[in-house]
Design a protein around this nucleic acid. Structure first.
Lengths: 336, 336
DNA sequence: ACTTATGAGTAAAACGTTTTACCTAATAAA
DNA sequence: TTTATTAGGTAAAACGTTTTACTCATAAGT
């Protein structure tokens, strides 16, 4: 793009570079009349200060890096993350920052991605699971940082997390209050805080209501996507009447397994999920699940990060977002 | 991040700035021994040239902008786009470019997003539908540009498109060869080239096989998501035996409508979709659909864009990607 | 021995900003 | 009238690079 430089604007306005700069940046020591005169010229020639020039001088790029976990295809495989990303983008746009997206952190070396090495971002948002060494190195290097839905609790980093335990409690409780006693718990694994806490919430609710947990009903390991586990579960002689599945993505596979067995939801088996992704309300039947405010996770992360950047001595805070039960059609009421 | 500057490296190496720069950039007029000596020092102090300094001097940011259409939530609502984005990101990473993501172009004013105004990107990739005025302005301003799956054919812009017409032909043909004669066509609208061409391909196949098209079977307008239309279609006295739905996203709603009517796929109604998003093979039953090579769309767009950027006089080319039928379980063979 | 190449390195300019320190003229205070 | 203050503006430095043009040895050609 052919764009004038501040020098040309100054020439046209017959004044110095500094005067133009002051007019643009709203500095006080300039008369209102010349400011208007210059701003007019700026507009007419549609001049915008170059990011590079500004950045070099101010030591601020006005770029924020967003780094996803090492998993492949985080966005297209799980809309959960897309939604967070959209939230981040919207909030950054409001604050006039650019979003630099990085999906592929070098897996073997813990090398920083280019945008960080070359100092092309003022700070970064890390989404989901990350190598600990990577996070620690960033913190050592004093790179402004916010973690979103991290794998585990990073002592003295600013983070945005979900109230996983409470959500799981609510979900389980809901099933219990609908008269279910034989309740299964399914989670892809327990390698991450979010799933560990969802498991904890499940346990809590079960003991709180004095229900025993059949260990055959707990599937928490080595799930590819859960298809096989759900299938096996439903072929038990005494199968559960309900499942709490810690992740709507896994529910998609569960639906498939259930249909393949010619069973019906919720008549034969009730399900409560977790996340409330776009699919959940299009599914047949529509899924009762715990809504996570994904967009808010993104915008809060941004606000906290910008705060850290501008206010050098901001202390680390952890934001815990509540979660909400969305009642749809995947649970049968056994009390009726 | 505290990083040394080239000046400090030069001081440590006891040489001039230019020598360090030459060592780093592989210039010839420097002895192999000093190059190694300097590179060692560079490594020890893990120095990386700043993007800002480099950019300002080279007039290259090594950033590429990716701009999505004006629709809301393009990523979380349709994984089709997420997949393209992942393709773009991967290819940019290979070529050592950063991806600057913009989901929210100012709707009223056709204003450029910040990254363009401030010349913070070397070129842009535009995804899906865009305001014509916006695209034309970019072209007038000589901003290197590639369009991916655009709304209509932009004369002399470089674009990456799908062979929509052939894909639709194949899809329809497949249904016909499976013995279907009463085939419906469903598309969210006909405002975009991709859907117009899919409609054309449908028509072509039908006439090619001398089948008549019941106009009640063609639903191409004002679809929210297609739920209502599908429902109406299936309540016709003489309902179609198959539907070609121009978009897997709409198929999701069709599945819902069909289930709500207590009909079975494919026993009561067969479906072929288009796009092959992640959901399509998890759906119950798994969806037969036209696979679009979304990731390739992204990587090709990047390669073409980088070519335009480096080779100032590259001429506009249109890449048409073929499409492939993926046979799954949503179509009944009436010949059996 | 004298010019001419060549190899290896350096100084300085340039990229586009913002800001600091300074200047000048006019106004206000004494 | 003289001096201090202020408003309005300017010149120059700085941010971190790369590149151009130059210098200075040393080696090679005549």
């Amino acid at each position: 793009m052919k764009s004038p430089t501040i020098r040309e604007i100054a020439r046209i306005a017959e004044c110095s570079l500094s005067t133009v700069s002051k007019a643009i940046n709203g500095r006080a020591d300039i008369s209102e009349s010349t400011r208007r005169r210059i701003l007019k010229i700026v507009g007419d020639n549609n001049y915008t200060p170059s990011a590079l020039g500004k950045g070099l001088k101010n030591q601020r790029t006005e770029n924020i890096g967003v780094i996803f976990s090492k998993e492949d295809r985080p966005l297209s495989l799980n809309p959960f993350y897309s939604r967070i990303l959209e939230g981040i983008e919207a909030e950054l746009a409001i604050n006039k920052y650019n979003l630099v997206l990085c999906l592929t952190v070098d897996k073997k070396t813990n090398n920083y991605p280019k945008m960080i090495r070359e100092r092309n971002v003022d700070g970064v948002i890390l989404i989901s699971v990350q190598k600990e060494a990577f996070v620690n190195q960033l913190m050592d290097d004093r790179i402004p940082l916010v973690l979103v839905d991290p794998n585990s609790n990073y002592h003295n980093a600013t983070q945005v997390v979900i109230d996983n335990e409470d959500g799981a409690f609510q979900a389980t409780q809901y099933l219990i209050l609908k008269g279910h006693k034989k309740i299964a718990f399914i989670s892809p694994h327990l390698d991450r805080d979010s799933f560990r806490l969802r498991y904890a919430g499940f346990n809590k609710a079960m003991t709180h209501y004095h229900l025993s947990i059949d260990e055959n009903y707990v599937q928490i390991e080595g799930l590819e996507h859960g298809y096989d586990q759900v299938r096996r579960l439903l072929q038990l002689k005494e199968r559960p009447t309900a499942m709490f599945i810690a992740n709507d993505l896994n529910v998609m596979y569960a639906y498939q397994a259930i249909r393949d067995l010619h069973l019906k939801i919720p008549e034969d088996i009730s399900i409560v999920g977790f996340d409330d992704i776009a699919w959940s309300k299009i599914a047949s039947p529509q899924l009762t699940t715990m809504r996570v405010y994904k967009e808010e996770m993104g915008s809060i992360a941004v606000r906290n990060l910008l705060n850290i950047i501008s206010n050098d001595k901001a202390s680390a805070i952890t934001t815990i977002l509540p979660v909400k039960l969305i009642e749809r059609n995947s649970v049968k009421d056994l009390n009726e």
